[in-house]
Computed example of a mutant assay.
Amino acid sequence: MSLRPGPIDVHAHWLPQHLFGLAPGSPLPPLRDHHGELHLGDLPLSIRTEAMSDVTRVLADTDAAGLGARVLSAPPFAFPVAEADGIDEFVGTFNDDLDKIGRDSGGRLIGLGLVSLHDPAAARKQMEALAGTETIRGIAVPPLLGTTSFDVAPMREILGSAAELGLAVLVHPMQLPRPEWSSHYLANLIGNPVESATAAAALTLGGVLDDYPSLRICLVHGGGCAPALVGRWEHGWQQRADVRGTGTRPPRQMFGELWFDTLTHDVPTLNLLRAQADPGRLMCGSDYPFDMGTPDPLQLPHAAGIDDAALEANARAFLGLDTGENDE
């Protein structure tokens, strides 16, 4: 697929209004529009409804941000995290709608689809269908499924299929509640970074990248608090047999094979990420249209000295658009 030239935002969200009921079995109340503002049940989300669901608004905001293109994925509350009848239909409808808006966007929108998280066989068939589209370049998944992450089934099998099919994977936390995080929005401010760090640990300590060396997997929000923990993981790997039990290479080396967006919220934290990660695997991310995102996703990487050419090249590599095989 031919994208419009310019930096690519790999971390933005979209959900058509007819899917506001969320995936079957969702533990969350449905989304609803209330006087133009998006609510999750009775909870206001500080998001204009059209920014989440109206493609015309999304395109206008993409242009206003100075982006060449935007990669859309489902908001995390739409992830199909429950085992329930109708999941495959919900996933298929979202993916079909996402493909259509990408095809109609003039090279400004592409997507990352959904898969049935509890059923690796169904997920593989869904990914095979996605691999046959021009506009969907991978999948978006949560870092945790129940009490497990990517180092065990079923998520490990899903990553294996994505790697084999050449699909990118974007990992987005779900803001899971805990009693000690019930105030001050801590389920987001602390919880989301911890979820991402848990995923990073599963990937680097669990041997996942050894098994699937071609896997392209991105942790949003700059990997959460994972960049600050790499040295601790490295020390544990050197000192403890149980930490070395699965992976064959030290975690610092494995960490350099992960991808990240630059949405760290300040330059010092972005510089820490740059020190721990491969600079060729850092990409622009906005978290559009959430309140913890930014309408100007280029400002922070520019302030840290990352230019548009690098942001575009890195995102194209992550999305599998740099080889010429699918970028027509």
Rank of each mutant, 00 (worst) to 15 (best):
S105T: 15
Q126S: 08
A201Y: 01
A123W: 13
T49N: 01
D287M: 14
T147V: 14
G111A: 08
L67P: 09
D151Q: 11
L229A: 15
D63K: 09
G231C: 04
G138E: 04
V10G: 01
E164V: 09
G86K: 01
A12M: 07
D99R: 08
K125W: 00
P250Y: 00
I8S: 00
V10Y: 01
V10T: 15
M127I: 09
I158L: 05
P30Q: 14
A313P: 10
D9L: 14
T246R: 15
I47Q: 09
N314M: 00
L170A: 12
A69P: 05
Q239D: 12
G236M: 10
T248K: 15
G166P: 08
L300Y: 07
I47V: 15
A122N: 12
D210Q: 13
R124S: 10
L59N: 01
I101F: 08
Q175V: 10
S73L: 11
V81Y: 03
I217L: 11
G224F: 05
L300C: 10
A121G: 11
E325T: 15
P120L: 13
P120M: 13
L205F: 06
R48N: 08
A140K: 01
V91E: 03
G166D: 04
G146E: 13
L98P: 02
L205G: 02
L43T: 15
H302W: 14
A197H: 02
E234C: 01
L114P: 10
P297A: 07
W14A: 05
L186F: 12
Q253H: 15
V91C: 01
T204Q: 03
R108W: 03
P120W: 11
V208S: 04
L45R: 13
D296R: 06
P289V: 05
L165H: 09
A275D: 13
E312C: 07
A168L: 06
G206N: 03
W181C: 05
R232L: 07
I136S: 02
Q238P: 00
T262L: 04
A309G: 12
T133K: 01
R108A: 09
T147G: 05
K125C: 00
A241T: 13
L205Y: 00
D119K: 14
L219E: 07
R32Q: 14
A202E: 04
A313H: 11
L19E: 02
P279G: 08
M1H: 11
T147A: 15
F318I: 07
P173M: 06
E325C: 01
T62L: 12
E128N: 07
